[in-house]
Design a protein around this nucleic acid. Sequence first.
DNA 1: ACCTTTTTTTAGTTTTGTCTAAAAATATAA
DNA 2: TTATATTTTTAGACAAAACTAAAAAAAGGT
Lengths: 217, 217
Amino acid sequence: MTLSEENYLKAIYHLEQLSGSGVSTNALAEEMQTKASSATDMVKKLADKQMLIHVPYQGATLSDAGRSHAVKVIRKHRLWETFLVEKLNFKWDEVHDVAEQLEHIKSEKLIDELDRFLEFPKYDPHGDPIPDKNGKFNTIEKITLTQALENKSYRCIGVKDDSSQFLKYLDSNQIGLGTSFEVVHKEPFDQSVKIKLKDKELVVSQSVAKNLFLETL
Amino acid sequence: MTLSEENYLKAIYHLEQLSGSGVSTNALAEEMQTKASSATDMVKKLADKQMLIHVPYQGATLSDAGRSHAVKVIRKHRLWETFLVEKLNFKWDEVHDVAEQLEHIKSEKLIDELDRFLEFPKYDPHGDPIPDKNGKFNTIEKITLTQALENKSYRCIGVKDDSSQFLKYLDSNQIGLGTSFEVVHKEPFDQSVKIKLKDKELVVSQSVAKNLFLETL
DNA sequence: ACCTTTTTTTAGTTTTGTCTAAAAATATAA
DNA sequence: TTATATTTTTAGACAAAACTAAAAAAAGGT
C-alpha cells in the first residue's frame, strides 16, 4: 500500500463510520481535498487491489482487507500521537500533522514495541480509542454537548474536531479531556450552551458544542 | 526536499566523505542502486535547487545548503536508530530499514524533542557520531582492524558496514561496541587477523577486519 | 595523434497520482 | 415524462522519478 492509497483508505473508513453506508465519489473527493476524477481513479485502483468494492455510480464499500488495513493505519496514527504528547512534550493541538507522516512508516515490530513502550494505551490525546494489535478497540457511547440536558453534569472525554484551531480554543477556555462541568442553559435561539466550569460560567456556540464528546456523570 | 532528493543528498555526502572530493555520476548511481542516467537527472535537479554544483562530465560537489541538509537527514537517521535500540528493544542489526523511513519525517520539534528525550546522545548504536541541532558532531580518529598492530590491545568503537548480515556475524562472535581484545597475529597471506577476546582466540577474515573501527587501548 | 573503452549525458518511455474538460449516468423537478 | 441539474466516469495531459538505448565527451594505450 502506498502513502496515497493508505490516505484514501483512511478517508473511506472515516466516511463509512459517519454515514454507516457506502461512500460516494464526491464525498471522498471532498474529504481528500481533491477532485472527483482523482477519487474515481483511486477507487478503481483500490478495487483492483481488493481493498473495496466499487459499483460504478454507486460509491465504494471497504472489504474486510481494506477495513483491516485502514484500522492498522489508525492504530499507528493514534499511538504516535500518544507518544508525541506523553514523551516528547507535544501539545494535543500540535500532533496531527506529524502523526499523519508517522502513520505510514512500515514496521510491525516498530508499532508493537511502541505500543508496549507506552504501556498499551486505550485512548489517544484527543480521546479517540486506539485499536490493539488485532484491530479491536473500545467504542463507548458518547454524546455531544448539543445533546446534553440542562442541570446535568458531564465530563469531556473526546473531541470530534481535532484541528489546532479548535483545540487551542478549548485550551484557552480551560477545557480538556477529563474536564467536568454542569450544563446551565441551552439557548433555543442559536443552540449555544451555557456551562458552569470550575465556578465560572461560559457560553459556547453550537459549533463548539457539537464537537465536544461527553459522558454523563 | 522530496524523499528521493534527500536520499541522493545523503549518498553524495557519504561519497564525498569517503573520497574527499567530488562525486562521479557512476559512483552515485552505484551507491543508489540505480542507473547512471537516473543519477544525472537527479544531480541536475539538485543543482537547480542550489544543493550542489554540477560541472557536466566532472561530477557533483555539495553546496553548504546541500551539506547542511544531508547532515540534518543523518542526524535524524542516527537519533531514530538510537531510539529504536534504547527504547523499543531493537537489536543493532534491525534498525537500519526503519530508520531509513523515519529519517524523512518533517518536523523540527519532533527531532529536537527526540534528542532531548534520549538525553542528547553523542553516538548511535553503530558507533557513528550524531550531529547536534547545529550540525556539529565529533570526529575522533578511528583505525580499522586491518591497520592494527600485533600484540597491542584495542576496543571496538564502531562498524563501517551496518548490514544486518555483518552485525549478526559480530553478535555470534561476541563482538560489540565496547568489546576489547588483543591482536595476536596478522596473517600476510590473506590479511586475516587472529585476535584474543575474553581468553578465546578468534580468526577474522580481511572483509571483517576492514569493517571494524577501533581505538587504541 | 588516433583508435578504443569508459563515463556521462540526452532523448524518449513508463508509472503513479494528480489535473481539466467533456461525456455519460443518475437524480430532481416542473 | 421530459427537461434540467448533479454526480460520476472517461479521456487526455502533466510532473516526478525511474528506465532503456543511443549519442557525446573524456580517458587510456599504442
